[in-house]
Design a protein around this nucleic acid. Structure first.
Length: 376
RNA sequence: GGGGGGAUACCAGAGCGGUCAAAUGGGGCAGACUGUAAAUCUGUUGGCUAAGCCUUCGGAGGUUCGAAUCCUCCUCCCCCCA
């Protein structure tokens, strides 16, 4: 994997770059749709590719390991062949499940014992086997096994958790270095900065992560409930320490406004379930603000879903119709909303890239953030 | 013609003397959602001058300190036998 930093915004820390992987190029700043179980929920790969035009999607180690399982993934020839997405893939390590499935796991220095949410069976995840599993899945970018700390989190816990994540990182790097890709193309390992919302812990973690000189670096443990201002404070701090020449990935973020603010602080890559999950739940993100499609006020609004939208669904369907689909429990509603939202997120980062290139990112961002906060 | 069952809020449907403005679903209205246990979850759903009051359980009377609940008549609906 290669990262080329093309230019930096003169008025902010925003950057414009290109990541080249074995499966294609990613223009940064980039937004990556989440496809946890090997599918971006409710959306065809064809639509991700042709209509939404995402350049990379995510998968998840924990979920894919449980189902369909490594045997099938290996037999298929890796996730790309299995799910038909021939572009770049990034897999999360299961570190987020350490946080989100906290009542279904036991953590110790060796690793994490999960009680499967599917059948209750026990599965030990260690830094070593998480590398091995991600080798089998075959993602272009794989993530270190970490503990995503909850928020709020007391200092001592955050500090100890940080040390554990750092120890695990060394084990990840060691195992990764001793193993080979299974399918003939290169994989890159990204380490993850933790430290909750404590400045000194974030500094300590960012310095540790930077010292490994990985292909790219991630920031985790944010967007877990902390106020947005604290998230921005942490990303700014960490971006000041992480190497400039490597892509920076802010994990799990976020709202359209979060993305623009973090681009301004030097983040290059984002992923978030929000466009798909909120879409399935009837919420649309647009350049003019958000829409709750289930609201009564759209019942006879026959105007396009999003007159300024870039997706075909924005012009083929009316708000009234898609509201009806949601009310009627028709699965086409969530499908349309997911395509719209993902296309909107792609439009957002596309515009961000364009405005960085034009040297007017900051003013555009300020105006856009204001518009995005409107509730239509 | 004979016998039996039933009418409860937008719908379905509990309740069968006070703790009932009335369970539970559905529907309606609104909210949440940030490296996905999510096509999920939460709140709310008679009125008002709102920790209180007013009008509600087919209709009209009655019994009782007190009735959605008991009695009488009326109106409709359903089932069984002829």
């Amino acid at each position: 994997m290669q990262f080329e930093l093309k230019l930096t915004d003169p008025l902010s820390a925003a950057r414009r770059g290109t990541i080249t992987t074995a499966h294609g190029i990613i223009e940064t700043p980039a937004f990556m749709p989440v496809g946890t179980a090997g599918a971006v929920k409710a959306v065809h790969m064809r639509e991700i590719r042709n209509d939404i035009k995402a350049q990379i999607i995510l998968g998840n180690t924990y979920h894919l390991y449980l189902r369909p399982g490594l045997e099938i993934l290996a037999k298929a020839g890796g996730l790309h062949k299995f799910n038909g997405w021939s572009g770049p893939i990034l897999t999360d390590s299961g570190g987020y499940q350490v946080y989100s499935l906290t009542d279904r796991r036991k953590l110790n220095s060796e690793g994490v014992m999960f009680h499967s949410h599917i059948d209750g069976s026990k599965h030990m995840f260690t830094p070593e086997n998480v590398m091995d599993i991600q080798r089998v899945i075959g993602a272009d970018i794989i993530m270190a096994f970490d503990e995503c700390t909850p928020w709020p989190c007391d200092y001592d816990y955050a500090s100890k958790s940080l040390d554990l994540t750092h120890q695990w990182l060394k084990r990840c790097i060691s195992r990764f270095g001793k193993t080979e890709p299974h399918y003939g193309y290169e994989q890159s390992l990204f380490p993850i900065v933790q430290g909750s919302t404590f400045r000194d812990l974030r500094i300590r973690s960012a310095e540790e992560i930077a010292s490994h000189n990985a292909d790219g670096n991630a920031i985790g443990g944010l967007s877990v409930g902390e106020p947005a201002e604290q998230m921005y404070e942490m990303t700014e701090l960490v971006c000041g320490i992480l190497p400039k020449a490597k892509p920076r990935y802010l994990m799990g973020v976020g709202t359209p406004a979060n993305i623009l603010e973090n681009i301004a602080l030097g983040i290059d890559m984002f992923d978030c379930v929000m466009p798909t999950r909120n879409g399935r739940n009837g919420m649309l993100f647009t350049s003019r603000g958000t829409i709750n499609l289930r609201n009564e006020k759209w019942k006879d609004d026959f105007s396009p879903l999003d007159a300024e939208g870039t997706a075909y669904v924005d012009h083929e369907y009316s708000r009234a119709y898609v509201k009806h689909l949601f009310k009627a429990g028709e699965m086409l509603g969530p499908m349309i909303a997911s395509i719209h939202n993902l296309a909107f997120y792609q439009w957002l980062v596309h515009e961000a890239r364009k405005h960085i290139e034009e040297g007017e990112f900051s003013s555009w961002k300020t105006a856009m953030v204001k518009q995005l906060s409107v509730r239509l």
